[in-house]
Design a protein around this nucleic acid. Structure first.
Length: 587
RNA sequence: GCGGUCGUCGUCUAGUUGGUUUAGGACACAAGCCUUCCAAGCUUGCGAUCCCGGGUUCAAAUCCCGGCGACCGCACCA
């Protein structure tokens, strides 16, 4: 990568973003704080439009539910989910050179304890290890200091009681799991179903960098899709089976190979590259989402996570990555197979029952045997030992006792012989109508700020020394620019009337009469406005206007009467600019 | 958190061996003129406690110390 060129692109985006109001660092008047951004008027619209795409794909087309819950949650939620244990770093610093190291790596290197074992240690145990052993700094061989830990969740207290610990959620997923029972009812107690939440999440990153790429407060879109692991087929799989996914396999990554392999959905499933049909289906949806916000497929890839890279809850995990000029491949979404991990955690911790009852096609008959000791015989015979014997009898499988009786006529418990007549064994038939299980979950999770950034980067074009933001038309923050050709002879008023009309028709319109017409087109290009409508002298004669395309810089002339319908179709992508009519010859 | 580079109008920047600097320009923005389709021109205007705090000095945007922030590299990124 050419570093001088790449730093140009990102600075260009940052500069443009600040100047035109896409985004900037928050709290600038107080010096700014890393990891927080403010989206300006254009940026907010763009971000909403991208989020609308997510809603369009997942909510409208697939019928996924959307919920909105709180950012702060009580401590139990993230204790149960495992985040309190996993969402932190143990660090140790050298007393001499000041360099910091990961505690697990030091212990692993010097003592040979496996990383998995170290993972299980808590902070007290780690401190103990460091007190027992003297570790030298790998860099300068001086002694290392006491280890420290850093929790990357924001911690607070809820209300005035310091014991009521709360955490800012580092992901929106948990608030879906926590509400599972209600949501399942709303899904009419049927699997599969999915729930999405688009909202803010907080991670107290050690050092946020890279602008929008790593924030401390960001927008996440977590989709939790629940299904029966024994009926794991995706009913949309036929529609996508020939779609091709570019995947960087873990086996290749281990060998240091960066080669992307292309698999059709069918192949990937057959070769067990992706284990879950639903997971790969969502990966295809993610690929389409990125295409729709303007990222060509050649700049997208899915990367299979290596075992030690995976989140604590995931069995199989792919990251969707997009190539950006400055930082290379960056993650924009994660696709994790979370199994029943989360629901199980919350069940264990809260006592709620998240199991689902599944009726068998045919009820199954189960025969149970019940053993009842005859106390009138056992009591007098074993005296003080009797109690112990009975306790043991209640534990052993009744079937084992029964078999022993049939074979030998007696059964040994605690070295004592129990005869057939000392107990009463009854048979009990039970009809089982179904079974209970915990649903499995696949999760696509999008970083909306990163989607925003890549959309902006891929929209950024340069034409004749001008900056043009070529957003796909339906994520553009402003849809139409309306200008009078000149500010006299009533053209201005006519253009204003037209703006009012088109606004009332539901379009997002910017009216601009400042400077020359060329300057207005240039300003509109920089804001990514797809179409500009100009009122000129011909308009005054016959009520037609020119429409100019942002990317082609060509114009067509259409009647004001037809305008609204044409524009509706255009923004619904039913027609293209070329369908508006013949291009006007440039003078 | 470590190392390197850096911080001047909205944006990009000149000035930074201390001294006529009331910190200059360009672009952008606003008002007006002009303008019959791609950042034309003219006039006027708005706009910077030179990142913050402290120190050295007769004098600091400029030198020194501390802090904050940005970028790059290292580490981290569940």
């Amino acid at each position: 990568m050419d570093s001088s060129k790449s730093s140009d692109t990102s600075s260009k985006i940052n500069e443009l973003a600040r100047r035109r109001g896409f985004f900037w660092q928050s709290y600038e008047i107080y010096g700014g704080v890393g990891g927080f951004v403010t989206y300006g008027p254009l940026g907010t619209r763009l971000k909403l439009n991208i989020e609308a795409k997510i809603r369009d794909i997942f909510i409208k087309k697939l019928g996924i539910f959307e919920i909105e819950s709180s950012v702060i949650s009580p401590g139990q939620v993230f204790e149960a989910s495992g985040h309190v244990n996993h969402f932190k770093e143990f660090m140790v610093k050298c007393s001499n050179c000041g360099k910091g190291f990961r505690v697990d790596q030091i212990i692993n290197e010097k003592l040979g304890i496996s990383l998995l074992e170290i993972e299980k240690m808590d902070f007290a145990e780690i401190k103990k290890v460091f007190r027992k052993n003297i570790f030298d700094c790998p860099e300068c061989n001086n002694a290392l200091k006491e280890p420290t830990q850093f929790l990357t969740m924001f911690k607070t207290t809820i209300g005035p009681y310091s014991k009521a610990i709360g955490y800012g959620r580092p992901e929106a997923a948990q608030s879906i799991f926590v509400e599972f029972n209600r949501l399942y009812k709303m899904a009419r107690e049927k699997l599969p179903f999915g729930v999405i939440q688009i909202g803010h999440a907080l991670r107290n990153e050690i050092s946020p960098r890279q602008g929008l790429i790593r924030l401390r407060e960001f927008t996440i879109a977590d989709l939790e899709f629940f299904f029966n692991p024994e009926e794991a087929n995706c009913n949309f799989i036929d529609e996508v089976e020939s779609e091709v996914l570019p995947i960087l396999l873990a086996v290749n990554r281990k060998k240091g190979i960066e080669e992307i392999s292309n698999f059709t959905v069918r192949e990937a499933l057959e070769k067990k590259i992706v284990c879950s049909e639903w997971q790969i289906f969502f990966m295809v949806m993610a690929m389409k989402l990125l295409l729709e916000i303007g990222i060509p497929i050649k700049n997208q890839r899915f990367i299979e996570k290596l075992p030690w890279e995976k989140a604590h809850y995931a069995t199989q995990c792919f990251d969707q990555e997009v190539y950006v000029d400055r930082w290379g491949w960056i993650e924009v979404s994660g696709h994790a197979y979370r199994t029943d991990y989360d629901l199980r955690c919350h069940m264990d911790a809260s006592g709620a029952d998240f199991r689902i009852f599944k009726e068998f096609e045919k009820p199954v008959e189960e025969v149970n045997y019940l053993l009842k000791p005859k106390m009138s015989l056992i009591g007098p015979k074993f005296k003080e030992k009797a109690e112990e014997i009975i306790a043991d009898l209640s534990i052993v499988p009744v079937k084992e006792v029964l078999e022993s009786f049939e074979e030998k006529g007696y059964y040994f418990v605690k070295g004592k012989k129990i005869t057939k007549n000392q107990v009463e064994i009854t048979q009990r038939k039970k009809i089982i109508k179904g079974k209970r299980f915990i649903p499995h979950v696949v999760e696509p999770s999008f970083g909306c700020d990163r989607l925003f950034y890549v959309a902006l980067e891929y929209a950024l074009k340069s034409k004749k020394n001008r900056t043009v933001l070529s957003f796909p038309r339906n994520i553009a923050p402003i849809q139409l620019g309306i200008f009078p050709l000149v500010n006299k002879d009533g053209l201005n008023d006519k253009a204003k009337t037209l703006s009012t009309f088109l606004r009332s028709e539901g379009f997002l319109v910017e009216f601009d009469d400042a400077g020359s017409i060329g300057r207005r087109y240039a300003r509109a290009d920089e804001a990514g406005i797809p179409l500009c409508i100009t009122v000129d002298y011909v308009t005054m004669d016959n009520d037609t206007v020119t429409i100019r395309d942002r990317d082609l810089w060509k114009q067509v002339r259409v009647s004001i009467n037809d305008l609204s319908k044409l524009l509706v179709d255009y923004f619904k992508e039913k027609i293209e600019f070329e369908d508006f009519g013949d291009f006007i010859e440039s003078k």
